[in-house]
Amino acid sequence: EHQTACDSYWTSVHPEYWTKRHVWEWLQFCCDQYKLDTNCISFCNFNISGLQLCSMTQEEFVEAAGLCGEYLYFILQNIRTQG
Rank of each mutant, 00 (worst) to 15 (best):
H2T: 11
M56V: 02
N47A: 08
E70G: 08
I75S: 15
W26V: 01
A5L: 12
Y17R: 14
F74Y: 12
G69P: 04
E16A: 12
T81H: 12
F43Y: 11
E63S: 10
T38Q: 12
Y17I: 12
Q33P: 05
I41Q: 03
Q77G: 07
V62D: 03
E59F: 07
F61C: 03
T81R: 13
T4F: 11
Q52K: 09
C68L: 05
A65K: 01
N39T: 09
G66T: 03
A64V: 10
C40Y: 08
H14T: 06
V62F: 06
V13P: 00
C40D: 11
I41S: 04
E60H: 09
E59P: 08
S49Q: 05
F74M: 15
Q82F: 09
E1F: 06
T81G: 13
H14W: 02
V13C: 08
G83Q: 06
Q58E: 15
Y34Q: 05
K20G: 03
L67R: 14
Q3L: 11
P15K: 00
S42V: 06
Y17T: 13
E59L: 07
C44P: 14
C31R: 06
T4P: 10
S49D: 14
C6Y: 01
H22C: 04
Y34M: 06
W24V: 14
E63V: 06
D37P: 07
H2G: 12
W26K: 04
G83L: 08
Q33W: 03
M56F: 05
E59V: 07
L51G: 12
T57V: 03
T38C: 08
H2F: 14
H14P: 14
L76W: 00
H2V: 07
E59R: 09
E60C: 04
E59H: 12
Q77I: 04
V23C: 01
Q77E: 09
E63P: 03
S42I: 07
Y71I: 14
N39S: 13
D37Q: 07
V23F: 04
I79Y: 15
V23Q: 04
T81L: 10
Q77D: 06
L51T: 13
A65L: 07
A65W: 11
W24I: 03
F46T: 03
T57Y: 01
E16N: 10
Q33G: 02
P15I: 00
Y71M: 14
K35A: 12
Q28M: 10
S42P: 09
N45H: 11
Q28A: 06
F74D: 15
K20R: 10
G50S: 03
G83A: 13
T81W: 06
E1Q: 01
I41K: 04
Q52F: 03
L53W: 00
M56A: 00
L72A: 02
E1R: 05
G83P: 12
Y17V: 10
C40Q: 15
I75K: 15
Y17K: 13
W18S: 00
L27P: 02
A65T: 11
G50P: 15
F61N: 03
I48L: 08
Q33C: 10
I79V: 10
L53S: 01
T81P: 04
I79D: 03
F46I: 05
E70Q: 09
L36P: 01
S42M: 09
L76S: 02
H22T: 05
F46K: 03
E59C: 06
S49V: 06
T57H: 02
Q3H: 15
T38K: 15
L27C: 00
E1N: 15
D37V: 00
Y71C: 14
G66S: 04
N78D: 15
S42E: 11
F61Q: 02
L76H: 04
C54K: 06
C54N: 00
I79F: 10
Q82R: 11
A5T: 12
Y73F: 09
C30I: 04
Y71H: 15
S8P: 11
F43G: 08
F29M: 06
T4R: 08
T57E: 12
G69N: 01
E70W: 04
C31Q: 01
W24D: 03
N39C: 06
A65F: 15
S49A: 07
R21Q: 15
M56C: 01
Y73H: 08
Q58C: 08
A64G: 09
L27G: 02
L76M: 01
G69L: 02
R80G: 03
R21D: 15
T19C: 15
T38N: 12
S55P: 02
C44E: 15
Q82I: 06
N47S: 06
C54G: 01
Y73V: 02
A5W: 07
E70I: 05
D37W: 00
L72W: 02
Q77W: 06
E60Y: 05
E70P: 10
L67N: 14
L51M: 13
C54T: 04
G69A: 02
Q33T: 14
N78T: 09
Q52T: 12
V62G: 07
T38W: 11
F46Y: 02
Q33K: 15
E59A: 10
T4E: 10
Q58N: 03
Q52P: 02
T57K: 09
Q77S: 07
D32G: 07
H22V: 04
I75R: 14
Q28T: 12
N47Q: 11
N47H: 09
D37F: 05
N78M: 06
Q28P: 09
M56W: 14
E63G: 09
W26G: 01
L76Y: 02
A65Y: 10
E25T: 06
K35V: 07
E70K: 12
E63K: 13
C30F: 04
L72D: 01
T4A: 11
R21E: 15
R80H: 04
Q77C: 08
E16F: 06
R80E: 02
Y73L: 02
L76G: 03
C54I: 11
T57F: 03
N47I: 02
E60N: 10
W18R: 01
Y71L: 13
N78V: 05
V62I: 13
N47F: 00
E1G: 05
N39H: 15
A64S: 13
L27Q: 02
P15T: 02
Q58F: 04
T57R: 07
Y71R: 15
H22K: 08
H22R: 03
L67Y: 15
H14A: 11
Y9N: 08
H2D: 15
F46G: 05
F74A: 15
R80S: 03
Y73T: 00
N39E: 09
E70S: 09
Q58T: 05
T81C: 10
C40N: 05
E63H: 08
I48K: 09
T4M: 12
E16M: 10
C31V: 12
W26C: 01
G83T: 11
Y73N: 01
P15G: 00
E59N: 14
L53H: 02
E25R: 08
F29A: 09
H22Y: 02
I75C: 14
G69I: 01
T57W: 06
T57N: 11
C40H: 15
H22W: 05
D37M: 01
A65H: 05
K20M: 05
S42A: 11
H2N: 10
C31E: 04
T4G: 09
I79R: 11
H14G: 09
Y34S: 05
D32R: 13
D37H: 00
C31G: 02
R80K: 13
N45C: 06
M56T: 04
F43C: 07
Q82S: 11
L53F: 03
T81S: 12
V23S: 00
E70M: 07
Y17L: 11
H22M: 11
G83M: 08
K35G: 13
Q58A: 09
Y17H: 10
L67V: 13
Q82H: 13
F29S: 13
T4Q: 09
Y73I: 01
F61D: 00
F46W: 08
L27Y: 11
C68M: 12
L53G: 02
I75Y: 13
D32A: 14
E1S: 10
W18A: 02
A65C: 12
H2Q: 10
L36T: 03
N78E: 15
V62E: 09
L53A: 01
W26L: 05
I48G: 02
T81M: 11
H2A: 12
G69M: 00
C40A: 12
I75N: 15
I79M: 12
F74L: 14
